[in-house]
């Protein structure tokens, strides 16, 4: 059912935008019998389709990294932002857009566009390296979590300093990035983006068995044969890659990562990661696409993605959790 819904969303999303393309035309495009004008065809292949692919993969990646975090920290409130990966990326982007803009006209245009992505990846991989170093020394996961949060605070502080030092135009471009968007990835970027995320999700499925063991906590997992160091590094690495890539290309997209694992567990009544990982990925893709549909409904103004996710998602989740809680009391 979820699959069908996803499929429908996929096509709806393809057709919605400032230039409408009807569903029947989309089918014809896919079957190579297009009678579409050159403009529409270009819009479809160069903008619309990439946007949908990015939404699907980005949503899936964030949801899967949320699931990884929750299992790793055994904490239902953990999400991709907790490790500070998103903050690290934001720091990189802030430094780039806010501080380098005065001299950016010296750089070639292609380097300029690549700059944001590059700065973001640099920022998140810096956070990743710090965290890996910490986790080498500190077996205690709570400390890693606290380091992540502290790191986020420090990044926030530096970002604020950057903001106060920068001009209005640079500020606007940073704000736009921080609002989140699936529409900024195209061409070669799209290929890299898709490859990294698909590999990341595939690798996550490969460690599903260790993840299942981790549900019982570190010590029990060890007694069941878990190689805990190796697993811990894999998890931190995968989260950084997945959420770091999404943040780099699409901006810091909140909320999706924390909540999708809860919904999946509730619906499927299981904690088995072999089932949860694909389910959470699908759910994440669905939520991301739904958010994009809402963002594109009014073609006159582009509503920021993070605003939509918050406005649309939070009430839904509140109702969902509230009703779930009541059922538990009855039984």
């Amino acid at each position: 059912m979820l699959g069908t819904f996803c499929f429908l969303l996929f096509f709806v999303l393809l057709s919605i935008g400032p230039v409408g393309i009807s569903l029947s035309e989309i089918f014809k495009l896919f079957t190579n019998q297009s009678e579409l004008s050159a403009t529409s065809s270009m819009i479809f292949w160069d903008y619309r389709l990439p946007k949908v692919i990015v939404a699907i993969l980005g949503g899936a990646a964030l949801a899967v990294s949320g699931l990884l975090m929750q299992t790793f920290f055994q904490n239902p409130l953990a999400g991709p932002y907790v490790l500070g990966v998103q903050s690290g990326a934001a720091l990189g982007v802030a430094c780039w857009t806010l501080l380098l803009t005065p001299i950016s006209h010296l750089l070639s245009p292609s380097l300029q566009s690549f700059g944001v992505t590059f700065a973001s990846i640099l920022g998140s991989s810096f956070t990743l390296s710090v965290l890996l170093l910490v986790s080498f020394r500190m077996p205690n996961k709570l400390i890693i979590l606290i380091f992540g949060l502290l790191f986020a605070q420090v990044s926030g502080g530096i970002i604020n300093i950057c903001i106060s030092l920068s001009n209005a135009q640079a500020l606007k471009s940073f704000m736009l990035w921080s609002l989140g968007s699936f529409q900024q990835v195209a061409g070669n970027d799209l290929i890299i983006f898709s490859a990294v995320i698909m590999l990341g999700i595939f690798a996550t499925v490969m460690i599903a068995k260790p993840l299942n063991l981790l549900l019982l906590g570190d010590e029990y997992a060890k007694t069941l044969g878990l190689k805990s160091k190796k697993t811990n590094y894999s998890i931190i690495f995968l989260v950084s890659i997945l959420s770091g890539t999404v943040t780099a290309f699409c901006g810091p997209i909140g909320f999706l990562g924390i909540i999708t694992p809860h919904v999946a567990r509730k619906f499927l009544r299981t904690n088995n990661h072999y089932i949860l990982i694909p389910a959470v990925a699908l759910l994440g893709a669905m939520v991301a696409m739904t958010a994009e549909v809402f963002a594109g409904l009014n073609s006159a103004i582009a509503i920021p993605l993070n605003a939509i996710l918050g406005l649309m998602g939070v009430p839904f989740i509140m109702v969902f959790l509230w009703r779930g809680r009541q059922n538990e009391v009855v039984f």
Binding site: P76, K209, N212, L213, L215, L216, L224, G225, H262, R265, K266, R269, T270, N271, N272
Partner: peptide, 15 residues
């Protein structure tokens, strides 16, 4: 573990 059932827990024990 949120939502885990007894049987599933035992299956993890058998892993």
């Amino acid at each position: 573990i949120p939502e885990i059932r007894v049987l599933e827990l035992l299956k993890i024990g058998r892993s």
